[in-house]
Design a protein around this nucleic acid. Structure first.
Lengths: 338, 338
DNA sequence: AAAATTTGAGAAAACGTTTTCTCTTATTGA
DNA sequence: TCAATAAGAGAAAACGTTTTCTCAAATTTT
C-alpha cells in the first residue's frame, strides 16, 4: 500500500453487510438482480456507515472525470465570474466540478495549467477571456478533449460563444430613440477592440452618418473628457442622448454632466454597456445599460462542453447570444420630446 | 471495459519500448535499478509518444488527489479573486489544482458542492467569504479533509486567516497624522460588521474620543451623505482628514467634497480601505487606501492547506496578516499644516 | 572454479470502483 | 419426481498507475 485511506470504502460496506463488494455495488446502483430486502438492507447499511463512492475510482473506470477546466486571463473577473456562475449552475446537478485556472497572459503558466488539467483527465475545457477578438496565450487546438471558447477568440472550426454586440448596441440606441432622443453621440473604447467597432457600426447605421462617435479609453476619465468635447459648445449642437461603450465611460459621462448642471435623464439620456452592477448601480442616477447575459452564456457553454464530452454533435462556429436592456434612471421611460 | 481511452498509457510506452510497464514506470520516475541506456531509451520513447501519466490513477494509488476545493459565497469576487490568485500561485508548482465552488448563501447548494469535492477526494478545502464575522452556510467541521478558513469565520479550533483590520486602520490614521491632519472623521459601514467596529476602535483610540465616527452603509451614497453632515456647517468644526471604511465610501466622500469645492488633498485628505483598484484608481483624485494583501493571504492559505494535507502540524487559531498602505493622490505626502 | 553478490527487468498486487461471468440454490413446469 | 428455468450472490477482470517481490543473468569474491 502506498497511501492510507481513512474513508469508508465499498469493502467496508460489504463487510458490514456480510456480502460481497459486487453485491453492494449492484444494490446501490439499482442494477443486477437480488432480493429487494437485500438491496434495502445494503442501502441502509451504506447510509449508516456514510459510504460515498470514490469518484476517482469511478473516473478511472468510466474514463470520464466529471470535471472540466475553466481557463481565463481575465484577472478582475469582470467577465469570468458571471460566466463561471452560469457554468457552475448548468453543471452542478450533473455532478461536474470546475477547475478554475487564472493564467494572466503568461504562455508558460497557461501550458502548465492546461497540462495539469489534461493529466487530471478533465472532460473538457472552457476558454474565456476579457475580449472577444483576442485569444488566450496558448493553443488549445488538437487537445484530446473538447474545447469551447466563451468570450474569447476561438481557433478555426471551433465552438465559440459570445455576446451579440451589434444587437446589444441596437437595443441601446432603440431605447434612446424610444424616449425621444434624436441627437445621439457614442462614446466608446479604442477602435482596436472589435466590440467597440461593432457597437459603433450599429450606432452609425441607426443614428445616421452625421452622429458623433468618439473612440478612446474604456475609462471614466474618457467619459469626462468627451462630455467636455460634446457639451462645452453652442446649445444646438449638443447631443440629447449618449450611448456609452461601457458602464465606466457612462459613469464618467453622467458625473461630468452633473458637474455642468445638465440633468440626467431630464436633459440628456445616457445608456451604458455591460451592466456591471458595481458601477451601474452606484452611479447617480443609476445607469440604464446593456446586459450581455454572461451567466446565460456560461450556462450554454457548460451544456455545450457536456454535449461534446458525451459525444453528441455540436455544430461549430461563432454563436452570438442576445443581450438585453436593463432600465434604470439614466434613461428611464418618460418621453421628453415629440 | 466500460469506457474507452484515446490517451496514450504506460502500456503503450511499454509496448513501444519492448519492456514491461514496471520497467517503464521505474525508468520515468528514476527509481529501481536498470541500465542507464535503458532508462534513457524509455524516457525518449515516452516523450516521443507524448506519454503523460494519468493523474487519476496516481491519486487512487497515493490516496492524494493534488486537488483542493475553494468554497466561497462572495458573488462579486471582490475578495475571492485576489485570494484565488494567491492560492493558485502557491500551489501551481506543486501540481495542485483548485476546484472553485460559488455557493451564494444556499446551504443546500453548499452541501452539494462539499460532497462533490469530497467524492473527488480533494486534499483539503479552503473556505472563504465576504466578511470575517460570518461563516459559510455549511458546517465544515469533522470533514475527513483539512479545512482552512480565509476571510470568513472558522469553527472552534480551526485554522483561520484574516487581515489585521486594526493594524490596517492604524496605518491609515498614522498616514493622516503624518501629513499633518489633526481633526479626523471616520466614515464606515454598519456596526454589525466586525471589520467596521474593529477599524472604528482603532480610530477612536488614535484620533481621540471626540473624533467623529459615522456608521452607515458600505456605499458611495453613504459617503456623500456624511460629507453633507460633516462639512455643511461652520468651518472650525470641519474635519481636515477623513478615514473611510472602504473605497466605495471614500469615493462618495471625495466626489461630494469636490462638488462643494473642497479640494482633495489640499484642503482635506482622504484615505480609503480595500484598495479595490476598480474604485480606488478611477476616483479623481485617486485614493490613498489600505490594501489587505489578500493575494498574500491566499498564498499562505494555500501553503497551509498543503501542510495540513501532508500531515505537517499547523497551530490552530486566528492569524491576522498585516495590511499595507497604498499611497495615491487623495492623501499624498505634502504636509499642509504644522 | 565454485560461491556469493550485484545488476537488470518482469510478475503481481494494490488503490476503489463497476460489470461480466459463473455458480449454487430455489422455483416452476410437465 | 425430475428436468428446465429463474433468482440470488460471489469471483474475477478491468481502468492506469506504482511498488514490492521474485528470478535469471552477469559479475565479483574466495
Amino acid at each position: 500500500m502506498v497511501g492510507r485511506s481513512s474513508r469508508v470504502t465499498i469493502h467496508d460496506v460489504a463487510k458490514a453487510a456480510g456480502v460481497s463488494v459486487s453485491t453492494v455495488s449492484k444494490a446501490l446502483n439499482d442494477t443486477g438482480r437480488m432480493a429487494v430486502e437485500t438491496r434495502d438492507r445494503i442501502k441502509s447499511i451504506a447510509a449508516d456507515v456514510g459510504f460515498r463512492p470514490n469518484a476517482l475510482a469511478r473516473s478511472l473506470l468510466f474514463n470520464r472525470s466529471f470535471t472540466i477546466g475553466l481557463l481565463t486571463n481575465d484577472t478582475y473577473g469582470r467577465f469570468t465570474l458571471p460566466l463561471m456562475a452560469g457554468i457552475s449552475e448548468a453543471l452542478v446537478d450533473q455532478g461536474v466540478s470546475v477547475f478554475l485556472c487564472a493564467i494572466e497572459d503568461d504562455p508558460g503558466l497557461a501550458k502548465i495549467h492546461v497540462d495539469a488539467m489534461l493529466d487530471k483527465q478533465v472532460d473538457g475545457i472552457i476558454a474565456t477571456g476579457k475580449r472577444i477578438d483576442r485569444s488566450l496565450p496558448v493553443d488549445l487546438a488538437g487537445l484530446p478533449v473538447p474545447v469551447v471558447y466563451a468570450y474569447t477568440a476561438g481557433a478555426e472550426g471551433s465552438v465559440t460563444l459570445t455576446a451579440d454586440d451589434m444587437q446589444g448596441a441596437e437595443l441601446a440606441i432603440s431605447r434612446l430613440h424610444s424616449v425621444g432622443r434624436r441627437k445621439l453621440a457614442h462614446v466608446t473604447g479604442p477602435e482596436s477592440f472589435a466590440s467597440a467597432t461593432e457597437r459603433a457600426d450599429a450606432f452609425r447605421r441607426m443614428a445616421g452618418a452625421s452622429a458623433i462617435i468618439l473612440h478612446g479609453e474604456w475609462t471614466e476619465a474618457w467619459g469626462h473628457q468627451c462630455v467636455a468635447t460634446l457639451f462645452d459648445r453652442k446649445g444646438s449642437d449638443r447631443p440629447d442622448g449618449v450611448f456609452c461603450g461601457n458602464d465606466q465611460i457612462a459613469r464618467g459621462v453622467v458625473d461630468a454632466l452633473r458637474e455642468r448642471g445638465i440633468r440626467v435623464p431630464e436633459d440628456v439620456s445616457v445608456v451604458g454597456f455591460d451592466n456591471w452592477e458595481i458601477v451601474a448601480a452606484q452611479t447617480r442616477p443609476a445607469l440604464t445599460t446593456i446586459d450581455m447575459n454572461l451567466k446565460e452564456l456560461g450556462r450554454i457553454a457548460g451544456l455545450t462542453i457536456l454535449d461534446l464530452a458525451e459525444g453528441r454533435a455540436v455544430t461549430p462556429g461563432l454563436r452570438k447570444l442576445p443581450c438585453n436592456l436593463v432600465v434604470r434612471q439614466s434613461c428611464d421611460g418618460g418621453r421628453r420630446e415629440n
